[in-house]
Amino acid sequence: MIFRTAAALFAILALVCAAVRADETPPPIGQDPMAQRYALGHGLPLGDTGFTLGGYAEAGYANPRGADNGRVAVDALSAFLWWDGGGRWRFFSETELSEPLRWGEGGVRTGDADLISERLYVDYAWRDALKFRAGKFLTPVGRWNLRHAAPLTWTTSRPLITEATFPTNATGAMAYGVLPLTPAGIEYSLYVSPGKELFRRDDLDTFTEAYGLRLSTPLWPTFDVGLSWVSFEQTSNREIRKQLLGVDAQWLLGRAEISGEFTYRELKGGASAGDESGWYLQAVLPLVGDWFAIGRNEGFHQRGAARDLSLWLGGVAWRPNPAFVIKAEYGHAVENAARLPEGFRASIAVLF
């Protein structure tokens, strides 16, 4: 029953979403003028106010390894609201309703829904080389965390090191921009998070203090590299000071893509002192038409663990345009002390 429900849900969403292309011509004259200004993935301008409304939705099916039955869920409904008046000031917010609906052995559940503020900040652009941001933003560590939205990633699950080694959001201030030190420029983000997180969730181990730096630049037109560093303390144990150093890269080969991240984390403070490290390497290869094959291997050396974790993942994705994707994958882990998702997972995501 759960499989038939999942198949029906995915079929309906696929037909509805795939019918809307990012390069469609506008609706005929005489229809809603607001609709004529809308293109999938670019948001809906709200009249002449300077505000634009967008977001994304994700629905998924998961059948964990060893489980008798799977589950279908609307995993996320996320709303973006941003303002650009054409001057130096800009505003952006992202509010997510996490898992508002789930079907499983016990029937339909809605009690797990959680309203989350992912981002809420104001920007001031003084120069291309120096801009300022204040509020709640995505922590500038690596690549995956900065483009975490489901329609923009190739797999339903995200690598362990992109969410378990540092808080994914920070509240504070940031200076960022592009420094003209090389022909392609060097992008930088210098940030500080001095206290409590804005709209903090009780189930997340957020920053209590953090400061960090991220640099990225193309070494050549299709090969980008990045370097991240952050020193921080978290809510669960303020006596432990953590230093994280990360390296990331992305290489585009036509429609193919190779990307990866490596992080090294040092913990200082009493019995918790020690080092941890992790990495992932992911390859995306074009198949036929809009179909792609995805392979990923990730590993993690956890403090106190007898053996290092290793996860192998293989899957496919259908991406008819940049704003819409259907994904299916299977993961198998060795020494899975971190309890990474294993088994079969699939999802459909659309960027509005």
Rank of each mutant, 00 (worst) to 15 (best):
K242V: 11
R303F: 13
S310Q: 13
F166W: 11
Q36I: 05
R158Q: 12
N169H: 14
F262Q: 00
V16G: 12
P33D: 02
G289P: 05
G50M: 12
H42C: 07
W291F: 07
L244P: 12
T155W: 05
E94T: 00
I258A: 05
E233S: 12
G172I: 10
A170M: 14
R238P: 15
G86C: 11
R133W: 00
L13A: 07
G55I: 09
G111V: 01
A125P: 00
A323S: 09
T208H: 08
T206V: 10
V350E: 05
E187V: 01
T49S: 14
W291T: 00
F223A: 03
A125D: 04
A337N: 06
I116S: 09
D224E: 13
F91W: 13
L179Y: 06
R88M: 06
S272G: 14
V74S: 00
F262R: 01
E261I: 00
T222E: 11
G85V: 13
P194W: 08
E233R: 15
L244C: 13
G314K: 14
E24C: 11
W251T: 02
R65A: 07
Y191L: 14
A346V: 09
F166A: 07
T25E: 14
A39L: 13
A323I: 00
T168N: 05
E342Y: 08
G295T: 07
F344K: 05
S216I: 00
S272P: 01
E266M: 08
L9K: 03
G60V: 06
A113N: 06
N145P: 04
G70Q: 01
F300Q: 09
W251Q: 10
E239G: 15
L253K: 02
R255H: 03
M174V: 04
G314H: 09
S93P: 05
G185W: 00
A113W: 02
G254E: 06
A346C: 07
S310P: 10
A293C: 03
L219R: 05
K242T: 14
G177C: 13
H301L: 12
T162P: 08
E99K: 11
S259H: 04
D248L: 01
T165A: 08
L245G: 05
A79Q: 14
P159W: 11
V141N: 00
F232R: 08
L115M: 06
I186V: 14
L13C: 07
R241W: 15
A273P: 08
E58T: 13
L351V: 01
T206P: 03
V122S: 03
H42R: 15
